Simulated assay, not measured.
Amino acid sequence: MKQDVRILLLGEPKVGKTSLIMSLVGEEFPEQVPPRAEEITIPADVTPEKVPTHIVDYSEKEQSDEVLRDEIIKANVVCVVYDVTNEDTIDKIKTKWIPLVNGDAEKGNKVPIILVGNKSDLRCGSSMETILPIMNQFSEIETCVECSAKNLKNISELFYYAQKAVLHPTAPLYDPEDKQRVTLNQVV
């Protein structure tokens, strides 16, 4: 079993990546949100899976593409955050972020991705109708969580699903694209 889990949050500017992290840690919506949160380590004894968890924030304004590539390589799971009220941030999931995370990876080595729809407090209804086709297109997407950093909705669930994607992967034992059985050593 993994010794620890490294979660990377990325997405377009102003989608709420830093707010999500600060809401999780502070258990309230921050009055002042910095451009980027420092890396946070959550001790094993306060996580559901009893594994230390590192949460890393990415800011395009503050960090280089090289730093981003390094963080993607180090990440066990990537949370691609989008704004449920902004269609452009949803489009960038498939045109920018997933290719950036797993564009060069071989199928068995793709990093699991959690889609995170933030700002659900600003929208009536769900963004899932728009997100489902993206989820069907990319097998590395584990799940999608709609949440609100502002009213703390589904914040702890988001990080639980990210941990779970690493510790209990749901990769299929049969790959429909290759039409062949995946052996357990390929999954683990």
Rank of each mutant, 00 (worst) to 15 (best):
P99V: 06
D57N: 01
K179L: 10
T95D: 11
F159T: 08
D4T: 08
V5N: 07
K153C: 07
E87R: 12
K179S: 10
S139Q: 13
P133C: 03
D178F: 09
V25K: 11
P35G: 11
G117A: 07
S59T: 02
Y82K: 02
E87H: 10
E66C: 02
H54S: 07
N102K: 05
E140T: 08
I114H: 02
K92H: 12
I114S: 02
N109P: 09
C79S: 13
E157A: 14
L100A: 13
R69C: 08
D70M: 08
A162C: 09
G103R: 09
T89E: 00
P13C: 03
Y160K: 15
D178P: 00
A44G: 12
L24K: 07
Y58N: 01
A44W: 07
E31N: 01
D57T: 00
L184V: 08
G26E: 07
K110F: 07
H168Q: 10
L24Y: 14
R181M: 13
V101H: 11
V187K: 15
E142L: 15
E129R: 11
K94F: 01
T95Y: 11
I73R: 12
R36K: 13
Q137T: 13
V80M: 03
L24W: 03
S59D: 05
E28Y: 14
I114P: 01
Q32H: 10
L158K: 14
Q137M: 12
A162S: 15
I93K: 00
D65K: 05
W97F: 15
L167K: 04
E12R: 00
K96H: 14
E106S: 14
N154W: 03
I113T: 04
F159W: 06
V51P: 01
D70I: 01
E27K: 15
L158G: 13
V187Q: 14
I7R: 00
K119Q: 14
S59N: 03
I98Y: 05
A44R: 15
